[in-house]
């Protein structure tokens, strides 16, 4: 039994290992699918950012490619009117709750949101929804980096790096709904927490929420 499967993405023939998730198979073959929360090493996908929608022939509605296993012979489309509509809405929802002063942001030009906008022809501003204003304070207590939650997209990359790579567990999600945030235990500044300032979380942040000073 062969452990590779063959299928097509946007009419391009692709091979991938059995059991691999569609998102990673596509990215490996230089086919871009927008994503923020996906972590390759994580067995159970987070599936929370809701950006990596694709269409698979035979499945009526778009599905998230981070949760779909590759299968022999599937026909995948990364673009369709439905996929584009969902992506546009998800993207606009995210930036309605995101500090959009890009020129002042350390992640300017290397930000994952900018990349999605560029790849899919979306604008980095939206008028559909009211802007959600936050009065978060910047935590600049660590020596070499700072955390600005007004830029955080809650993708969970930093939390995963902190727990699974650094094995520290200084940060995590707390509160629910629209108040969900990444923070330390008892919400103390990072320098007062058990954070070792290894900065793996800064490396993991796809936007400019965690950044070098």
């Amino acid at each position: 039994m062969s452990d590779t499967v063959k299928f097509t993405i946007d009419e391009q023939a692709v091979e991938a290992k059995k059991g691999e998730k569609l998102l990673w198979a596509a990215l490996k073959n230089d086919i871009y699918i927008p994503h923020l929360c996906a972590i390759k090493e994580e067995k159970r996908p987070n599936a929370s950012c809701r950006l990596c929608f694709v269409e698979i022939e035979g499945i009526p509605n778009p599905v998230t490619s981070c949760t779909m296993n590759v299968e022999e012979g599937i026909v995948v489309k990364t673009r369709s009117p439905q996929v584009d509509r969902l992506l546009k809405t998800a993207f606009e929802l995210l930036i309605s709750d995101h500090n959009l002063k890009c020129s002042q942001c350390p992640a300017n030009r290397k930000c994952a949101l900018q990349k999605i906008a560029k790849e899919r022809g979306l604008k980095l501003r939206q008028k559909r929804f009211k802007t959600i204003t936050r009065d978060y304070e910047i935590d600049d207590s660590p020596d070499e980096f700072a955390f600005d939650r007004s830029r955080c997209v809650l993708c969970g990359q930093c939390v995963w790096a902190d727990r699974e790579k650094a094995k520290v567990g200084a940060i995590g999600f707390t509160k629910r709904g629209i108040n969900r945030v990444v923070t330390t235990f008892e919400e103390v500044p990072l320098a007062e927490s058990i954070c070792t300032q290894c900065m793996l979380c800064v490396e993991a942040c796809p936007v400019g929420a965690l950044y070098y000073k």
Binding site: S48, R50, L51, T89, S96, F129, K130, I132, G177
Partner: peptide, 20 residues
């Protein structure tokens, strides 16, 4: 909106805008 856990984008931010 109050009971949304806040994990995914559509429910976290979408229900907030729907309510607004």
């Amino acid at each position: 909106q109050h009971e949304s856990c806040g994990k995914c984008t559509f429910c976290r931010i979408g229900t907030k805008h729907l309510l607004d």
